[in-house]
Amino acid sequence: MAKKSQTEKLCSLEEAISRFVPDGVSVAMGLQLESMIPFAAGHEIIRQDKRDLTLIGPISDILFDQIIGAGCAKKVVAAWVGNVMMGSAYNFRRAIEDGIPRCLEIADHTNFTIALALHAAALGVPFLPTYTAGGSSLFSRNHGLAEFEAPFTGEKMGAVRAISPDVTIVQAQRADAFGNAHVWGNLGASPDAARAAKHVIVVAEEIVEPKVIASDPNRTVIPGFLVSAIAEVPFGAHPSPVQGFYNRDNECYREYHKATKTRQEFETWLHDWVTGVKDRKEFLQRLGEDRVNSLKVRKHAWSARADFGN
């Protein structure tokens, strides 16, 4: 692979999505479960009207629902699609049940099997064995799961086929211009999804000097040489939380639940918050300064310094 220069990697989110998320690709995102979901990236995908995407992620908490409702997805590979706090996701239901706005294929996983599928790809092997899902109906509907007789022990086990996303979008607290990214808090399936992907887009709350990243290498979850593009987008994960930056905007999930029960209501919501908005900056203006400020960290909890000296 050709060496990419620093300037090529650091770009706007608009450019990152435009270059690395063409129509028809598979995109892994929302990999840390309910936190650090790259909503700004998802909204940019919708604004650029991408088509026929395959969405990959364990639970996605309303992000996939929005992309599905916008008609950008043809398939979802997931363990759970809904609104964690409120329950059902209505666009997902409309798409599966009635083909609105278009038919949606689904490969049902469990959180463990999707983590294993990404881990297999990250290890460079075609599948991994597991005991989970034994006795379940998942094998009958998901072609990425199969039963087999294990070597050495002869027992019946599940095999989970590797998943290599065309592109993985990861939200990070901070990164340098080379794409080396610090992530802290729960990691979910992010590290594996980044290693499993052909391209990685990092969306960071802030871009810092390389020496900041190098000062704490255990926190570098994504090494920059795997990264194709990096964009600085403050509040890029809102309404999901980013530890040390902002809290979850619970009200937003409640409002979304109420505002998307019908297709018509969803179309209004989509215009008000995504397609009728230029970028994340304008989105935050629409949200209002008071609301944005109310989400910021109320009480800092710094970690102790670690001595990397020798």
Partner: peptide, 9 residues
């Protein structure tokens, strides 16, 4: 419905 999440596991 939303699906398994981690429930099956």
């Amino acid at each position: 419905l939303p699906g398994s999440g981690g429930a099956c596991d």
